[in-house]
Simulated assay, not measured.
Amino acid sequence: MSISYKKLWKLLIDRDMKKKDLRETAGISTASMAKLGKNENVNTEILVKVCNALNCNISDIMEIVDDDN
């Protein structure tokens, strides 16, 4: 099982936002954005900042997927 942030990237497209816009609005580092882009684990605090910036729930930005895909 692994984490996928595809929902986050789709949400950004739907809202016509760039990753840079999200980073600035949420107040997160470029390193955290890089981890999100690589589907790596990030601190829960980062996920909360992203959700607050986008006014959404955590299930709207991430999901757990099977590694078998």
Rank of each mutant, 00 (worst) to 15 (best):
E45T: 14
N55V: 02
I64K: 12
Y5K: 14
L8T: 14
M62K: 11
T44Q: 10
V48H: 07
K38R: 15
K10L: 12
T44D: 10
L8A: 12
A34C: 04
L22E: 11
D21V: 07
S4M: 03
T30L: 08
S2F: 04
N55K: 11
S2V: 10
E24T: 08
A26K: 01
Y5Q: 14
L11N: 13
S32A: 15
T30K: 11
N43A: 15
I46L: 07
K38F: 08
K18D: 01
L22K: 11
Y5F: 15
C56N: 11
M1R: 13
K35D: 13
N41T: 11
A53K: 00
I58A: 10
D21I: 09
V50A: 06
E63L: 02
V50N: 02
V50T: 05
L22V: 10
D14Q: 09
D67Q: 08
L8N: 14
G37W: 10
I46F: 07
L54C: 05
L8S: 13
I58P: 04
L22A: 09
N57C: 02
D21M: 09
N55P: 00
K7Q: 02
K19V: 05
M62S: 08
N69L: 10
I46P: 02
L36G: 04
K38V: 04
V48P: 01
T44M: 13
E24G: 00
L47M: 11
S32Y: 06
N43S: 15
I13K: 14
